[in-house]
Design a protein around this nucleic acid. Structure first.
Lengths: 185, 185
DNA sequence: TCATAAAAGCAAATTCTTTGCATTAATAGG
DNA sequence: CCTATTAATGCAAAGAATTTGCTTTTATGA
């Protein structure tokens, strides 16, 4: 019996994971993050604390696991007509979601965990979203900057400012997009 | 008696803070971060655990406090002759320091703490360093981009990649600098 | 010098974390 | 379909960390 087999839908491990994740989401919604503990989560999820300790190691890893799940985009970027407007629309929404209270908390949880894999997943999700926008632009015959350049010039500044203090204003986000769309090298 | 008064050099609070910080730095050097606990720190610092709990709240806040201290630049950016080479030299060193094992740990500790003030301080340190480079360039009569633009186009991409997976290569850093120095708008 | 207030020490109570062992559940092979 | 195997969970006791009330120390200003 491998872990993978066991995680198939309906397996016991999958059920435990689902109920624990659910318990975390609910507790995070109804109380301060600092008050959420593993015994509390275990109680709400109907499992014993030792199960959680053995599977996730500590609270930080569990929170990161839940957070990365919630950070997965649930839809394709909106088609606003052109590559530039697509990117503008997407970036404004991204900045808004990520700078919200819950957004900041999720990012912090992901970055605070020891395992770097979760953080990688996050930027991968973002990259994929931009890739969709880029492909769409190319299919229309438009010029569109390299995805890595968009990561550097739009995503990174937004995230940096969210993490290190500011909430980036809409105008600033729009400027970032305008700049990356206007450079040609 | 105010806290400020009490923190003056030689005061009791200042002595406790110094010995606790020192204990943290030493313990972080000699063992894995996951094994460092407050009772351990307290023992090494010669104070009781409750003192630490009362002053810092939890381990995360204490580690953030120590980390932000260590992230303060200890010297002015090197003068390499021109604004561009100054920035290149500074950015390469910054990327290297921040992507090192200890560098990553310190950043993570700062971002993981609830109090956002420490993270702000970090970006403020960075901004000041770039400001020195910018002022020097202006004094030479050179054109130099706005500091906020350098934050967006050089610092943010470096930090984003460190946090979300990659270690930015030297060439990439140099490209970021070249790009920000070549744009004129 | 003395009164005051803030911080630290101490220790008991509480809560969280770890761990060994028993039990349950899922899988592969017969 | 049944059974042996193995991974995961439950349980409970032991160990460690955290909280808290109270006392003592230390710095400050009158």
């Amino acid at each position: 019996m491998t872990v993978k087999e066991n995680l198939r839908p309906g397996g016991r491990s999958a059920r435990v994971q689902a109920s624990v994740h659910k318990a975390v989401r609910e507790l995070m919604a109804e109380m301060s993050r600092a008050d959420v503990t593993i015994p509390l989560i275990a109680g709400k999820a109907g499992v014993t604390p030792s199960t959680i300790y053995r599977r996730w190691g500590d609270l930080q890893e569990l929170l990161a696991d839940v957070a990365v799940d919630r950070l997965r985009p649930d839809m394709q970027p909106i088609d606003a007509g052109s590559g530039k407007t697509d990117l503008e629309t997407w970036a404004e929404q991204y900045a808004e979601e990520m700078s919200s209270g819950p957004g900041r908390e999720m990012i912090r949880d992901v970055l605070a965990a020891q395992a770097g894999a979760n953080a990688c997943k996050c930027s991968e999700y973002t990259r994929q979203q931009i890739d969709v926008i880029a492909e769409r632009a190319k299919a229309r015959g438009e010029a569109f900057p390299d995805v890595e350049r968009v990561m550097d010039q739009v995503v990174a500044p937004i995230m940096y400012r969210i993490l290190f203090g500011d909430v980036p204003a809409t105008k600033r986000v729009r400027d970032l997009v305008a700049r990356v769309m206007s450079t040609t090298d």
